[in-house]
Computed example of a mutant assay.
Amino acid sequence: MSDPFVQLHKAMQQFAAARDWEQFHSPKNLAMALTVEAAELQECFQWLTEAQSQALTAEQLTAVRDEIADVQLYLIRLAGQVGVDIEQACWDKMKKNDAKYPADRVQGSAQKYTAYEDPET
């Protein structure tokens, strides 16, 4: 993991240990908590138009920022519990996505990669 992730991982470990929360931080529980936080992030955008979602008020942006942080912190904690290097996992996934979505075949389309699979493979 890159240094910022390592530092945040250590800080999360210390935060949980100081509160005796390790007992609750199983991978299953962390994954469930992550979905709750992701839903809270979605809630920030619920009922907004596309234009409104791209021009948040200062108050709305603060709420979005807090929820993004919650999601990221749970991801860091979960990754630490299962031994995943987030940075490397992201680079690896980007390579997979590049293979699934070749720019010359998917330009300007939001279709799932299965719509672009080569029928000869």
Rank of each mutant, 00 (worst) to 15 (best):
E67K: 11
H9R: 15
S109D: 14
K95L: 05
A110Q: 15
D20T: 11
S2I: 15
S109K: 13
D92K: 11
P119S: 05
E120Y: 14
K112P: 11
E37W: 04
P27W: 01
L78Y: 10
E50L: 07
S53K: 07
I68W: 01
A16Y: 12
A33R: 00
T114P: 04
P4F: 15
L41S: 02
M12R: 07
Q46G: 08
F15W: 10
Q52I: 00
G80Y: 01
R19E: 11
V36I: 15
R19I: 12
R105N: 12
H9N: 13
Q46N: 09
A16L: 14
Q54L: 10
Q46K: 14
S26F: 00
V106W: 11
N29H: 08
P4A: 09
V106T: 15
T114F: 05
L48H: 07
V84D: 04
Q7R: 12
T114D: 14
S26I: 06
A63L: 12
D98C: 03
T49K: 02
V82F: 04
S2N: 13
T62S: 15
V106G: 04
K100T: 00
A31I: 06
Q107E: 14
K95S: 13
I76F: 07
K93N: 03
I86H: 12
P102T: 14
Q81W: 00
D3L: 13
K28L: 08
S26M: 01
E43S: 05
E40S: 01
A33M: 10
R77V: 00
C44E: 05
C44Q: 12
D118L: 09
A79C: 06
L56Y: 05
T114V: 12
L61F: 15
L8E: 13
P119G: 12
T35W: 00
M1T: 14
E117K: 06
L34Q: 09
A17V: 14
G108M: 15
P4C: 08
T49R: 03
S109N: 13
E40K: 03
L61M: 11
Q107G: 09
Q88Y: 01
V84C: 01
G83R: 07
Q23K: 08
D3M: 12
W21T: 14
E43P: 02
W91G: 00
I68F: 12
